[in-house]
Amino acid sequence: MFRGSDGTYRDDPNAPLRRAGARGDIGLWAWGRADYPGLALEEGVLPGLLSTGLWEVTADQDWGLDWHLNEGVEVTFVTHGRVGFASGATQHELGRGWITVTRPWQRHRVGLPHVTACTLGWFVVEVGAQRPNQAWSWPPWVALPQADLDHLAGLLRGRDRTAWRIGAGMEQAVDRLELALRSPGQRATSRLGLRMSEVLLELVDVLEGEDVAADPYLTSAERTVEVFLAGLRTRVAEPWTVGSMAEACGLGRTRFTHHCRQLVNTTPLEYLTGLRMEHGLRLLAGTDATVADIALSCGYSSSQYFATVFRQHFDRTPLAARRAATRPPPADA
């Protein structure tokens, strides 16, 4: 499961990669935990490393890695070829000389929509945070002084950019990581830990070279609520209360409700109801699902209660809304 503060994406975004590797369509060298692809990392080996790997794609594919979140910070680089990458509304064509970093709450995808010929490497590291307002804690194997780790965390938390041009030092670091990923054997994971640490050290220089001041808003409680609300539309089926929404943001009910009003000018439950009604209307217009099933998809255990709320919101019944959506357009006069 790939979970973050702005939603839970239950479909495995790595499934197309895993299938392509199993078919032999691509070269794939990877280690991971849980649902991540590759050889399983043993307990106690590089704790906090969720995934690292390299793919070598020599021909354009018919798949991509769809929108998803990770449970840690992901660093991605390309050493040969080019591939599309998007985070939020920003798109890039990544090639050699680029690196991306996505935080746990940043939705992103690789392939626009499909993966093109390239050699791409990545690693995903837990930092003890799933929300913008949480402090970071790096795994013990990252071989940087604590002051540098704290500085790197501050640089990444105070910016929301996800892609950077890199210099020769970082290019050499990712080349060494690529070689380590291609060379399994004795002490392979020890080498990987050192090479990933090198990349993170070079990342400090990359970020310090950016003439942009850290934005305190990006680590604020209000930003955390903003991220949560942005992802709430993907989680309308969950049994939310004001208390559980506030808890998901690490806030008390009063403070959470205050920030919600500041951001969307309504109460949390009114905002949730609006999202649920929009979702229900889309399902009524675009699927053959029963009203009872649609009610469940919108977080209502009772189809009658769903119909009542729907009628209050749209001034029509769910069935009337479905008939209006499927009615043929009038003939030209």
Rank of each mutant, 00 (worst) to 15 (best):
R3F: 10
G4K: 10
D6A: 13
D6G: 15
Y9M: 06
R10E: 06
D12V: 03
P13A: 09
R18D: 06
G27C: 01
R33G: 03
R33K: 14
P37D: 03
G38W: 09
G38S: 09
P47K: 13
L50C: 03
T52N: 15
W55A: 02
V57I: 15
D62Y: 01
D62E: 10
W67R: 15
H68N: 04
H68I: 00
E74N: 12
E74V: 10
F77H: 05
F77N: 06
H80G: 08
R82K: 10
V83I: 13
F85C: 01
S87I: 00
S87W: 07
A89R: 14
Q91K: 12
H92R: 10
H92F: 04
E93D: 10
L94G: 07
W98A: 06
I99Q: 08
R107S: 01
R109G: 00
G111M: 03
H114P: 00
H114M: 05
T116I: 10
L120A: 15
G121L: 11
G128S: 02
R131A: 07
A135C: 03
S137V: 07
P139K: 08
P140T: 12
A143Y: 11
A147P: 06
L149I: 02
D150W: 13
H151K: 14
G154H: 15
G158W: 07
A168G: 09
G169F: 01
M170K: 08
E171I: 04
E171Q: 12
Q172S: 13
V174A: 01
V174I: 15
D175H: 04
R176H: 06
L177H: 10
L181W: 11
R182A: 07
P184V: 00
R187V: 04
A188P: 07
T189E: 15
T189V: 01
T189W: 15
S197N: 01
S197I: 00
L200I: 00
E202W: 03
E202R: 11
L203D: 05
V204A: 00
V204S: 01
V206L: 03
Y217G: 01
T219D: 13
R223A: 11
E226R: 14
F228H: 15
G231L: 04
G231I: 09
L232C: 05
T234P: 03
E238T: 13
S244L: 14
M245D: 13
G252F: 02
G252E: 03
T257H: 09
T257R: 15
Y271G: 07
G274V: 01
R276H: 13
E278W: 08
L281Q: 15
L283F: 07
G286M: 06
T287S: 10
T287Y: 02
A289C: 05
I294L: 02
A295V: 09
C298L: 01
S302M: 13
S303P: 09
F306V: 11
A307E: 05
V309D: 08
F314H: 11
D315W: 02
T317G: 10
L319T: 04
A320L: 08
A321M: 02
R322Q: 13
A324Y: 05
P328W: 00
P328N: 05
P329T: 11
